[in-house]
Amino acid sequence: MMEALATAAVVLLIVTFGPFAVRDSGLFAVALLGIPLAAGAISLLATRRSTLPRAALVTGLASTLALAWSVVTIVGLGLYLLPPALLLVTSAVILTVAAIEARRTPRATTTVA
């Protein structure tokens, strides 16, 4: 759920700041706004299509990329990219805890007497 919210936030930023970024940065605007969009989309796809531990790993890596990119571009639009990155970090933490709890809980076994 948070991955979808983070991806939607990046799409909103692209719609809002895309023309300004293209005017200011030219072709670099594709990387400036495309990297956080790709991180959110990959995380969203991983949580929808893969197992819980794999989704936690992919979301963790995507959130690290989005957070690092936000810090690298903090002078420009990076400050606006920080909330979606933090949403991905929160999602990665929640998925990791869920994956650990899923491994920790014993599966029900049936015995025939």
Rank of each mutant, 00 (worst) to 15 (best):
M1N: 13
M1G: 15
M2G: 15
E3A: 14
A4L: 13
L5F: 08
L5M: 13
L5P: 03
T7V: 07
T7L: 12
A8I: 10
A8H: 10
A9R: 05
A9N: 06
V10S: 03
V11K: 05
V11I: 14
L12A: 15
L13K: 01
L13N: 10
I14A: 08
I14C: 11
F17T: 07
G18V: 04
F20E: 13
A21H: 02
V22N: 01
D24R: 12
D24F: 08
S25T: 05
G26K: 01
G26E: 00
L27T: 04
F28Q: 08
F28L: 12
F28G: 00
A29M: 02
V30L: 12
V30R: 00
A31Y: 13
L32H: 08
G34M: 07
G34D: 04
G34Q: 01
G34H: 01
P36F: 12
L37W: 10
A38E: 06
A39R: 05
G40Q: 07
L44K: 08
L44G: 14
L45S: 14
L45Q: 12
A46R: 10
T47H: 12
T47N: 12
T47K: 12
R48M: 12
R48T: 13
R49T: 15
T51S: 15
P53W: 00
P53N: 01
P53T: 02
R54H: 09
R54Y: 08
A55S: 10
A55F: 03
A55I: 00
A56L: 00
A56C: 00
L57I: 06
V58I: 15
T59Q: 10
T59L: 04
L61I: 09
L61H: 01
L61P: 02
A62I: 02
S63W: 00
S63A: 15
S63C: 06
A66R: 04
A66G: 07
L67F: 14
A68D: 11
A68W: 09
W69I: 06
S70H: 05
V72R: 14
I74P: 07
V75D: 12
V75M: 13
L77F: 15
L81R: 02
L81G: 05
L82S: 10
L82C: 10
P83R: 03
P83C: 05
P84R: 10
A85P: 05
L86V: 14
L86T: 05
L86W: 04
L87A: 11
L87E: 03
L88K: 08
V89I: 13
T90L: 13
S91C: 14
S91M: 10
S91D: 14
A92V: 05
V93S: 04
L95C: 07
L95E: 05
L95G: 04
T96S: 15
V97D: 09
V97T: 11
A98W: 00
A98S: 08
A98C: 06
A99N: 01
I100N: 09
A102W: 00
R103D: 10
R104A: 09
R104S: 10
T105S: 12
P106W: 03
P106G: 01
P106K: 06
R107L: 11
R107K: 09
R107S: 12
A108F: 03
A108T: 11
T110R: 09
T110Y: 03
T111F: 06
